[in-house]
């Protein structure tokens, strides 16, 4: 085997990864240590978790959610997983297998919810029935089911695998529109309030490249394929723009997001209070909502009455729009 000439910054052993934003290379052991340290730093700085918390991790079968589950268990937290079957054809079938394999290999509890079996619809059908982009129906469905599963299961914290790239891309989009309401809510911790569990994002100091590397080094198999319904969405375009900046100026992405949290988010505190204070209860499920029926129940109402729509049909229509 041909060795890399690069050496680990810590031990001077052979490096397995270069991290330009740290201007350093790391071996496997010290790369994992760096990731653990970044997660601990995020947890402590933003008061995300406590040792006695009952944690529910939203798991998709992708690298980020499996990595955050692995990291939290590795750090000693009691964490169960929640997988939602979205019904996106083979992509969902394969994703579920990765989530199940991860859980069973480690003796962890994985809760599963099937949109089709339990609510009578899937994401392709919801996209067609509601005439909205698939990511909209998907996000609304997942958020509702994550919240209700966490509350009903008695979990004290809901964890998602949003990483630095995800958060920087959302911040970029919100800033392009100067959407103050969304900017005010773009925090790594959302406290529990009526109808909502506490939600935290322990990976906000780590990039998706680092999370892919974590999975490879730790031997975690994950869904490598991109969701076919996400192709061409704005989020990916924002990430590409930020990656172009990052390649010219390593560390820019972290500065953009983490300095927002330090310097800008405090100035926006309270700006989203008006929206949350005015919430009532959904007449169907009791979830918090600004209207009579919550967004999730509106999707269920429209989509469960619709004939099932194959993934391919939504994809071909989506490509035509872009």
């Amino acid at each position: 085997m041909v060795a890399s000439g690069s050496k680990c910054r810590v031990c001077k052993g052979p490096a397995i990864i270069d991290l330009p934003r740290h201007n350093a290379h790391f071996c496997a052991e010290h790369f994992l240590e760096l990731c653990r340290r970044q997660v601990v730093k995020a947890i402590e700085k933003f008061d995300m978790l406590h040792p006695d918390d009952r944690v529910l991790v939203a798991v998709s079968g992708g690298k980020d959610s499996l990595a955050v589950w692995d990291l939290l268990v590795d750090l000693g937290y009691q964490a169960d997983g929640l997988y939602i079957g979205l019904g996106i054809g083979e992509y969902s079938d394969v994703s579920a297998e990765f989530a199940r394999a991860f859980a069973s290999q480690r003796g962890l509890k994985l809760i599963e919810i099937s949109l089709r079996e339990e609510y009578g619809y899937d994401i392709p059908t919801a996209a067609k029935a509601t005439r909205r982009v698939p990511c909209s129906a998907c996000g609304t469905s997942k958020r509702h089911l994550f919240d209700s599963a966490a509350l009903e299961g008695g979990y004290t914290v809901l964890v998602t695998g949003h990483n630095l790239d995800d958060e920087a891309a959302v911040l970029f989009g919100n800033t392009l529109r100067w959407d103050v309401e969304y900017l005010a809510r773009q925090l790594p911790v959302l406290p529990a309030r009526a109808g909502f569990p506490k939600k935290v994002k322990p990976l906000v100091r780590l990039t998706e490249r680092e999370m892919a590397a974590w999975c490879i080094v730790r031997g975690i198999d994950y869904q490598v394929e991109e969701c076919p319904m996400a192709l061409g969405n704005k989020h990916l375009a924002y990430k590409a723009a930020l990656n172009a900046i990052e390649s010219e100026s390593p560390g820019s992405k972290a500065s953009f997001y983490l300095n927002f949290l330090d310097n800008m988010a405090p100035l926006l505190a309270g700006r989203s209070a008006a929206a949350t204070d005015a919430l009532g209860e959904c007449r169907s499920c009791g979830a918090p909502t600004t209207g009579d029926l919550c967004a999730f129940c509106r999707i269920v109402e429209k989509s469960s009455a619709h004939d099932p729509v194959p993934v391919e049909l939504v994809l071909s229509k989506g490509r035509g729009r872009r």
Binding site: S4, G62, V224, H235
Partner: peptide, 30 residues
């Protein structure tokens, strides 16, 4: 870059016998 099942940095030298996988990392969910 994954070479023969092991992660390697971008400046690693490869030999003709190496099995190399370049894995994409960008995901579109938000």
């Amino acid at each position: 870059v994954i070479r023969n099942g092991t992660l390697v940095p971008g400046d690693a030298e490869l030999s003709v016998d190496d099995v190399v996988e370049i894995r994409p990392v960008i995901s579109g969910g938000s």
